[in-house]
Amino acid sequence: MQNPKTNRENVLTRLRSEIYGGARAPGSRLVQTDLAREYGVSATPVREAMRDLVNEGLITATAHRAARVRELDPAEAVDINELRLILEPYAARQATERISPTEIAELEELHGRMPGAEGSVWVELNHRFHMIIIEATRNPTLVGILTNLRNVSRFYFEAALRADGGDYAKRDREHAAIIAALRRRDADEVEAVMAAHFSPSVELRRRLTLLEG
């Protein structure tokens, strides 16, 4: 007998991964019955997973129209990048005195797996790295805001990587600097390194425009 909860989680994980990775192209239609047939499940877990992804901002759905993967919007990507540039360095500062040794060890473990990783694999490790820091703020409001921003930001980040790759080595070095500053409980340094870690918005817009053309 099928487990609806497990099916929903499996569909959610698979569909989210396909959207992030570009297998489901921006703007492409998502038909519940087609997805259910492709994934070998009933329509119910597909409908539930799609509802979750609407809430995450990865799918758009309106009455009497087919659901679609969200469109690429460089202007929106820049807005989200600018908001994260304000909030994530602040979150990193807040986390500096609150993060536990266990969480720092988790950051080091993730950092150790990043060299040699690329594409969606690296992005997933990077996402988990940053979420540990965000959750270490112990601030539910800030965690909620940044989780929502990062869900959509990741969509654009992976698209930008598909456009012309990324400097993984530079980002890995910055992760090492963040960990070192967290270990020293140096809030000023953590905040500064996190701010420098973000891609300039003008560069993000340029890379996304490559995909539009």
Rank of each mutant, 00 (worst) to 15 (best):
Y90Q: 06
M114F: 04
V121W: 07
A195W: 03
P140W: 12
G116E: 09
A61I: 02
S42V: 06
V54D: 04
R154C: 01
A23V: 11
S120L: 15
A67E: 08
A91K: 05
R68Q: 13
D79F: 08
H175E: 03
T62C: 01
M1R: 13
V31Y: 13
M194Q: 10
M194A: 08
D188C: 03
G21Y: 04
P26Q: 10
Y156E: 06
M131Q: 14
V152T: 15
R128Y: 01
F157G: 01
A36G: 10
R29V: 14
L204Q: 05
Y20Q: 09
E135P: 07
R171W: 08
Q32G: 09
G21T: 00
R68P: 00
E212K: 09
V190G: 04
M50G: 00
R8I: 02
Q2F: 02
G40L: 12
L125Y: 14
H130Y: 12
E97S: 14
I178H: 01
I99P: 06
I132E: 07
A117P: 00
G213N: 09
L72G: 08
S153A: 14
G165T: 09
T6V: 15
S199I: 13
E71Y: 09
S153M: 07
A105T: 02
A181G: 06
E189V: 07
T62F: 03
E203P: 02
I145V: 15
V41N: 12
A181E: 05
V121Q: 10
R29E: 15
S153V: 01
P26V: 15
V54Y: 04
N126T: 03
S100V: 04
D73F: 11
L107Y: 04
L107T: 09
E174T: 08
I19K: 09
E118W: 05
